[in-house]
Design a protein around this nucleic acid. Structure first.
Lengths: 167, 167
DNA sequence: CCCGACTTGTTTAAATTTCAAGAAGAAGCC
DNA sequence: GGCTTCTTCTTGAAATTTAAACAAGTCGGG
């Protein structure tokens, strides 16, 4: 009879269930692991480290606040607080934007670069040890592909929408 | 000459770089997506929802605090706060443990069950839409396998260590 | 029984994130 | 110009998480 009516939810199969749990399990363990690693070795959470990396890779080691927020996939509000903290550490500096008086650049300082140079090797090692060392080249390849597909489906939401990453 | 000295970090290859970015990108987008979905439809963050699910699946819809914390992979401290909040919502209740006077059970209330019944379909749909619908059966299978491997490597940390998930 | 070591769970404070406004400038339109 | 609307970024308070310390209870010897 009821082989899926309109309001009859389509649950996950056992196989899907297993995969979903494995996914959640692995992602939370890994994020916790890296967060602790960076907190211990660099004195900052993973996301803050990511901000420094973004800046380091940007043109003049600087990015507009909004751009940085988008790259890091966080709200501008959160970024404001985070940059305030990093500024306190002396790793980032703010600069006014000449062309748009509302704008601000977040700039990686030399100290920030130094901090990155000092801590990056340890972080890469942690990623490698927990992630790449566990996978065969084929698994690595397949996983990358799958993740790209998932990310694609959640991207800044194509269509006419404006800034959905913003809430 | 220097083809990897002891303190010469082994960086990620371009391919690894791409995979790692895709992974980070996808996991943060997905977590944000599900968090927003649950916040909107159930008024609680993803992790809180997960606590209710764990309790619902447990023997008498109850779990000792420490067990629940381990299942959810969070600290006992965080759990204490979370349960306090869920108790305020009327979705969870605490009960003393008869055999160990220090112990507490977190128990899913009827209201909590009802809340779960009401919101689970939407959540499952969100997971399916963002995750499973994007993957072929083979990708699904491969990803599950890869995630299991990664999780395995980060598990409660074998050796002689005690409770590493705890800090 | 008593003591020292460990466990369970909570609590307090500090750090971080979220949420709702808000200040200031840019942009388009009449 | 004057007006409205949008954009950029910040702010302050509330909620959540983390970190450290603590109260109670259990456990295993002596």
């Amino acid at each position: 009879m009821n082989t899926a009516s309109a309001d009859e939810p389509r649950w996950l199969s056992d196989e899907e269930q297993r995969t979903w749990r494995a996914y959640m399990h692995a992602t939370t363990l890994l994020e916790d692991h890296l967060d602790r690693q960076l907190q211990r070795d660099a004195g900052m959470p993973h996301i803050y480290y990511g901000l420094l990396v973004q800046l380091d890779e940007a043109p003049h080691r600087r990015l507009r606040m909004t751009e940085l927020a988008m790259h890091a996939k966080i709200t501008r509000s959160r970024l404001s607080h985070a940059v305030a903290r990093l500024e306190g550490n002396g790793w980032v500096r703010r600069e006014d934007c000449p062309s748009d008086k509302r704008g601000q650049f977040a700039v990686l300082t030399d100290e920030g670069r130094e901090e990155l140079r000092r801590t990056a090797p340890g972080h890469v090692a942690a990623v490698r040890q927990a992630f790449f060392d566990r996978l065969t080249p084929e698994q690595h390849k397949a996983l990358g592909e799958a993740m790209r597909l998932i990310a694609e489906g959640l991207e800044p939401e194509g269509a006419g929408a404006d800034l959905p990453w913003l809430r």
